[in-house]
C-alpha cells in the first residue's frame, strides 16, 4: 500500500458523498428515544429530579460532582421555580417532537443534545449507558445531514420549489458509527480483563440480578450450556462490533448478530433506552441503496394493502 492509497481510503471513508437516508432514519429513531425519556421516564417526575426542590441540591452537585469547576447546564439559567422547570420540560418535549418529524432538524438536535447535557450534569445519578450514548452521539447528529430526508424540512423545501439536496459528505454519520465501535471496543476490552466473561459465568450472574428482571426465559436462564454459549457469543459479536463491522462483506452479518444480542438482552433484562440506543444506531451502517430499496418495498406493499382494503370496503 502507498501513502497516497491510504489517503484515498481516508477521504473515501469520511468525505465521499452519500445519500442521507440512513442518518435521516436514525434521526427519527433517535427522536423516538428522546421522546420516550422525556415523556415516559421523566414525565411528571421531571421537577423531582431537576427542579428547585429536587432530591439532590444544586450546591451539593456543584461541590461534589462538578468539584467547583464549570459545567454546561442550561437549567441554571431558569428561574428556580417549579413552574419554570415544568415549562422547560414542555419545551423539551416539543423540540423532541420537532426532531422526530424533522422540523428545523439540526437546531432541534442541537437543543435536545444541550438539554441532555444539562440534565446529565444537573443529576448524573439517574442515567444509564443508553442515556450517555445518546448524549455522546448528539453533536455528530446535529452536524449531519439528518434533515435532508424523511422530514418536514424536506417537505418545506419541495413546497418552495427548491431542489432536493443531493448526496453529501457523510463525515458526521461516520463519527456516529465510530462512536458505536468505540463502545464495543471498550466494553470488549473490559470484559476480557475480568474473570467472569472468560470462565463463562457472566450471563449466569447477569440473569440473576433481581432489580433488572424483565420477561422470564427459563429455557435460557436455567440452562448452563445456553448460558455459556451466550457468554461466548457476546464476546465474539462485541469483538466483531469494532473490527469486521467495517468490511462490506461481513458488515450485515455483524449487524444481525448485534441486533440479536441487544434484543435478547432487552427481552430478559429491564434496561429501558439502553439496548434500543444501540440497536437504532446500527441503522447508520446500512448502505443507502439497500435502505432505500427496503423502504421502497415497504412503501409499495403498504400502498398495495391500502388499495386492497379500499377495494374490499
Amino acid at each position: 500500500m502507498t501513502f497516497a492509497a491510504l489517503i484515498a481510503v481516508w477521504r473515501k471513508f469520511w468525505f465521499e458523498p452519500q445519500d442521507a437516508s440512513p442518518v435521516a432514519l436514525y434521526r427519527i429513531l433517535y427522536g423516538i428515544l428522546i421522546l420516550q425519556i422525556a415523556v415516559v421516564h421523566l414525565g411528571e417526575n421531571f421537577s423531582q429530579w431537576y427542579g428547585p426542590n429536587a432530591v439532590m441540591t444544586l450546591s451539593a452537585v456543584i461541590k461534589h460532582f462538578w468539584l467547583n469547576e464549570p459545567r454546561f447546564d442550561m437549567l441554571l439559567l431558569l428561574p428556580q421555580t417549579e413552574g419554570a422547570f415544568a415549562a422547560f420540560h414542555l419545551v423539551f418535549v416539543m423540540v423532541a417532537v420537532a426532531l422526530t418529524v424533522g422540523f428545523c432538524s439540526r437546531y432541534s438536535v442541537l437543543f435536545v443534545w444541550l438539554t441532555l447535557l444539562s440534565m446529565h450534569h444537573h443529576d448524573p445519578f439517574n442515567i444509564n449507558g443508553g442515556d450517555a450514548f445518546l448524549r455522546a452521539v448528539g453533536p455528530w447528529l446535529a452536524l449531519s445531514h439528518c434533515g435532508d430526508k424523511f422530514s418536514v424540512d424536506s417537505l418545506i423545501r419541495r413546497k418552495k420549489g427548491l431542489p432536493e439536496p443531493g448526496p453529501s459528505a457523510p463525515w458526521a454519520q461516520r463519527m456516529i458509527q465510530v462512536q458505536l465501535a468505540i463502545v464495543y471496543w471498550q466494553t470488549f476490552c473490559c470484559k476480557i480483563g475480568g474473570t467472569q466473561w472468560l470462565d463463562g459465568s457472566a450471563i449466569y450472574y447477569a440473569t440473576r440480578l433481581d432489580d433488572m428482571f424483565r420477561f422470564p426465559a427459563p429455557i435460557i436462564s436455567n440452562n448452563i450450556y445456553l448460558l455459556k454459549a451466550l457468554n461466548w457469543f457476546t464476546l465474539v459479536i462485541e469483538f466483531a462490533g469494532w473490527t469486521v463491522i467495517w468490511f462490506k462483506e461481513s458488515c450485515y452479518y455483524v449487524l444481525i448478530g448485534l441486533f440479536c444480542l441487544h434484543l435478547g438482552i432487552d427481552y430478559m433484562i429491564n434496561l429501558p433506552v439502553f439496548e434500543w440506543a444501540f440497536i437504532f444506531t446500527l441503522v447508520t451502517f446500512i448502505r443507502p441503496e439497500d435502505l432505500n430499496y427496503v423502504l421502497h418495498r415497504v412503501k409499495k406493499l403498504s400502498l398495495k394493502s391500502v388499495r386492497n382494503a379500499g377495494a374490499i370496503t
Binding site: R71, H120, C190, K191, G194, Q196, A206
Partner: peptide
Amino acid sequence: LFWGLDQNWKLFSPEI
C-alpha cells in the same frame, strides 16, 4: 467535562 464529552462504556464489565 464541560461539554459532556467524557465517556465510559464498561457495560456489564469487568465483573457483574
